[in-house]
Design a protein around this nucleic acid. Structure first.
Length: 217
DNA sequence: ACATTAAGTGATT
DNA sequence: AATCACTTAATGT
């Protein structure tokens, strides 16, 4: 029912009217598949062939990379209106994904076929701009992650991570466990717990069960 | 009441 | 900063 073009068209108009021309919206609606994901569902996994790319209508998607020894590292998040342009370019040449995309919150998105990307790039200027902007944004966020990894000690990375969570989740109360943070930062839970305790003593955060309150000054 | 999961901590490397 | 080993606290069945 939700996959009919009319429904997609309505959704697209609602969120992307300002960015895309009508004709493009119609094409996306005709070729796209509406999909929803629950928290911790995997949208795209590493090494799997990618046939569709998500365009996020709302919700939050975590993009991460895993190395050969099960270590997962958080790269960046996708929010409303975002798409993963990095995988796109990758898709055109090879169809295997480099990243894993996990739903962090309930996600509504439109999955559109990879083979249309190039076609639309040529046909629609708004699409070209959208893709290039998206690529730029993703790259910038990834550079921030690299900068943090390379130059900051874990205590600073942790605080960065928390303030970023506040920004992304639109709440000063971050609902998360120490273990989950440890996974994202690729460290151990014990270390996270210790560092969080010192942050609490410094008055920067308050700890609760499954919850961390971050006071933004 | 018991089991499970999350969080706190000293000691060691 | 990581790991071990253990404790305590909160929650689920």
């Amino acid at each position: 029912m939700k996959n009919n073009p009319t429904f997609l068209k309505q959704q697209l108009h609602l969120y992307f009217n300002a960015i895309f021309e009508t004709q493009l919206i119609n094409e996306i609606a005709e070729n796209g598949i509406y999909a929803t994901y629950e928290r911790s569902d995997i949208l795209v996994d590493i090494g799997l062939e990618m046939t569709h790319i998500p365009l996020i209508i709302n919700g939050l998607v975590k993009i991460s990379r895993e190395d050969s020894h099960e270590n997962e590292i958080l790269l960046y998040y996708l929010e409303e209106g975002d798409t993963c342009a990095i995988s796109f370019i990758n898709c055109i040449h090879r169809s295997k994904s480099m990243f894993r995309a996990t739903a962090e919150e309930k996600v509504e998105c439109i999955m559109f076929p990879v083979n249309k990307i190039e076609e639309w790039m040529i046909k629609y200027k708004t699409w070209r701009v959208f893709i290039i902007d998206s690529y730029h944004n993703r790259l910038e966020e990834m550079l921030n992650t690299i900068k943090s990894l390379a130059f900051l000690k874990l205590d600073n990375r942790l605080y960065n991570y928390l303030t970023n969570q506040v920004k992304i989740k639109n709440s000063e109360d971050v609902l998360i466990t120490h273990q989950e943070i440890a996974n994202d930062l690729n460290t151990s839970r014990v270390v996270v717990s210790r560092l969080l305790k010192t942050l609490e003593h410094e008055g920067k955060i308050q700890l609760g069960r499954h919850k961390i309150h971050v006071s933004i000054s």
